[in-house]
Design a protein around this nucleic acid. Structure first.
Lengths: 199, 199
DNA sequence: GTCTATAAGCAGATAGAC
DNA sequence: GTCTATCTGCTTATAGAC
């Protein structure tokens, strides 16, 4: 069965907004991508801003669990780390523009973040903190704050993609070659982090 | 003596473009910031795009040396690392919007990066690589590629600022409180990296 | 060099037929 | 629900006086 119009619009908008941001995106371009005309966009979502918010909320809800999800497991912290880089970076390979998109747009509307965190009631950060604190207490790892560790891991993973165009230019390689490097990086980043915290 | 008009324009444009990006910035806003009118902008820089390029090139040339500069020193690698985070993050405290600005706009025009690297002939990356390779050979640190180490350090430093609005929202703190955290982070990040690579 | 006034084009949004 | 045609306002850019 065919995709419904409303979904087609949302998918097209998602693609274009993620690529170009709110300001850079054009309603005409979204309409083309969706295979319809501009008027229909406004029929389903009154304004460009409303369409954007629908997209942003969806993307955000998809991404957030990927950031914290793994830490919810029973597994030991040191086992989670390689898994984190493997899964997180595979996701980013499929969606390389998402990090900059989220960071840029959140900068414009900081309140959005608060609203989202309120909705997903759960304080996931607390779980991460507890997990890390437990590992520290058990003498498994050096003393480090949970929030610091997760920020460090996110930094190392996300920046690799945010800075991809820069890296490719400096190193003079194609996107394809870059993706091969990423695969090696998954492992070396896991090692890097483990060495940094292991006693 | 007063600032010349051309400089006033460039400074104003720098401020606005860095805050809002190429698409988000308005010529009127830049004119206001500079204390002149729109027509004059076009007198000095024919188009918005040309003005933007002038700004971007300047910002880029200011920032690049800060990324690599430290590694050019004679000092040992392990001494450079704390200095790197100290200087780099102090710079970012004064210019918190620059990282996202550079990353966003480079994504739109990847060629720019190549052109810039060609102009500044020097292959600074080679120097970093050599420095790291020397430290590895001397048995000072674990085996790691120079380019990986510098990317990791940049990641940890830059992301802290790129993700600041997000962090502030999650943690429910003000920008001021956030900056205090940054000061602690300078030290803990240096430790993190040193632990990661030290034998 | 600097200004005011205005042109020209574009993008978001709506009216109205089907 | 979906389209074509059109309106409205904004933004870049230019013309032309001083």
């Amino acid at each position: 069965m065919e995709e419904k119009t409303e979904e087609k619009i949302l998918d097209a908008a998602k693609k274009i907004f993620i690529e170009k941001g709110l300001d850079g995106a054009r309603m005409q371009e979204i309409a083309n991508e969706a295979g319809i005309n501009k008027a229909l966009l406004h029929y389903y979502y009154r304004s460009k801003n409303q369409l954007f918010e629908a997209v942003y909320e969806q993307v955000f809800k998809e991404v957030l669990p990927k950031m914290y999800g793994l830490f919810m497991q029973e597994t030991s912290l040191l086992d989670i780390i390689p898994q984190f880089f493997e899964l997180h970076m595979e996701f980013l390979k499929r969606n390389p523009s998402i990090p900059l998109f989220i960071l840029m747009e959140i900068k414009k509307v900081p309140d959005f973040m608060k609203r989202m965190m309120d909705k997903n009631q759960i304080d996931m950060l607390a779980v991460v903190k507890a997990k890390v604190a437990a590992a520290v207490d058990a003498g498994l790892i050096r003393s480090i704050k949970g929030e610091d560790l997760i920020i460090n891991m996110l930094s190392l993973s996300v920046f690799q993609f945010a800075a991809a165009p820069m890296y490719q230019a400096v190193a003079g390689i194609t996107e394809e070659e870059y993706f091969e490097i990423i695969d090696e990086r998954k492992k070396s980043l896991a090692e890097f982090v483990i060495n940094a915290i292991k006693k």
